[in-house]
Amino acid sequence: MSSTELPSVPAANVLPKVAAVRVAEGERLRSVGLPGVTLTVRSRPPAREGLPPAFYVHGLGGSSQNWSALMEQLEGDVDGEAVDLPGFGDSPPPDDGDYSLTAHARAVIRCLDASGRGPVHLFGNSLGGAVSTRVAAVRPDLVRTLTLVSPALPEIRVQRSAVPTGLLAVPGVTALFTRLTRQWTAEQRVRGVLQLCYGDPARVSPEGFGDAVQEMERRLQLPYFWDAMTRSARGLVNAYTLGGQHALWRQAERVLAPTFLVYGGRDQLVGHRMSERAVRAFRDSRLLSLPEAGHVAMMEYPDVVARAVRAFLAEAGDGRGDGGADALPAGSGS
């Protein structure tokens, strides 16, 4: 493994003529070279030495930036790092073009193994929640606790609002969508994403909206942007069809780590009703239900989620915060 600090502008031979990835104050990026894949890892210096390690995995179409707000909230509790999955954020595509769920999980495992930071407090949102579930099931030695925000686990009755995202997995649909939306501005695309992912898009500040537009403009210049989206969506759908020991719900049942589940009442991509099944599947679980939140509660309500995580970590015996009342027993809501 090789690890290097990233300059403010990506190397010319990686992302030519594409703007630099945004790095918030106090954050830093580094590039980690692993067999078959190069990953960008975002981190914040911990508030003090000796804090337990945490690792954050984003969802489909997202990046490590999705965790910036929560990472800042928890910098006094954990030593956090967030990864850009292959083909997302500032990570280039994998050498073999494999965007399956197993491949994403393998990239996370390789990164954790190479860093020597495990076991970690593992966080996952959406696609990253499914990836993290698989990691926790197959490599329990790497995970001390598992926190899942709207994890993309299989649903029999998919919400109608989630269908367009799933259709990305259908051959030809992405090319058609690209042609139909060719004239859409980055601002229009961001507004659509916020409408889909937030319970209340008005919670996004003008500055945050501007940053999102700039990031969308950057991503649309990447030649592999739609390929990474399409193949990752297809990989997730394919994972839903697997049976036996590879079935995601079966793997959820195998997770040994204490698990904290966060679901939004206004989530248009993962049905809130799935929280009940998740509580039953994960053997040692707690539930935080946020009625007003959408699909990315850690972005929409980072302070609430952070307080709940502190309480969860304290209960799990690895907390460094002052606790709180937001981490609820399995089957409860707020």
Rank of each mutant, 00 (worst) to 15 (best):
E81H: 13
T147D: 05
G33R: 08
P92D: 14
E300L: 08
L222R: 14
R320S: 09
Q159G: 14
P46V: 04
N66H: 07
A47K: 00
G76D: 05
H58F: 12
A12G: 00
L85Q: 13
R182S: 00
L122Y: 12
A105E: 01
A20D: 04
D284S: 14
T102M: 10
T4R: 13
P291D: 13
R191E: 11
L290A: 06
A297L: 07
E207P: 00
S232M: 11
A105N: 08
A136Q: 02
A281K: 13
H104C: 13
Q65T: 10
A202T: 06
T241D: 05
A54L: 02
L29D: 09
V135M: 11
R310E: 03
L194V: 05
A136F: 09
V158H: 09
G59W: 03
P140F: 11
A330S: 09
G62Y: 03
G172K: 08
V304Y: 03
L142I: 07
W249E: 01
D98G: 10
P35C: 15
D90N: 14
L256F: 05
G271H: 08
D141V: 05
A103H: 12
G89R: 11
A103L: 11
R219V: 10
R189C: 05
S68D: 12
G116W: 07
L39P: 13
P16E: 12
G244H: 09
D284Q: 14
S132P: 04
V262C: 05
G244N: 03
S100W: 03
P93G: 14
A103K: 10
G244Y: 08
P171T: 07
V255C: 08
P258I: 14
V304T: 03
S68A: 10
F209P: 00
D303H: 05
W184V: 01
P302I: 05
E207A: 04
A130W: 07
G50E: 02
L39C: 15
G59M: 09
F312Y: 15
F260H: 15
E253L: 08
L248M: 10
L242F: 04
G166Y: 06
F177H: 04
E215M: 12
T147W: 02
G50D: 00
A114D: 07
G61F: 11
V193M: 14
G264C: 03
S91G: 14
E215W: 11
A247K: 07
L39D: 11
R157E: 12
M274Q: 15
Y301L: 05
P119Q: 12
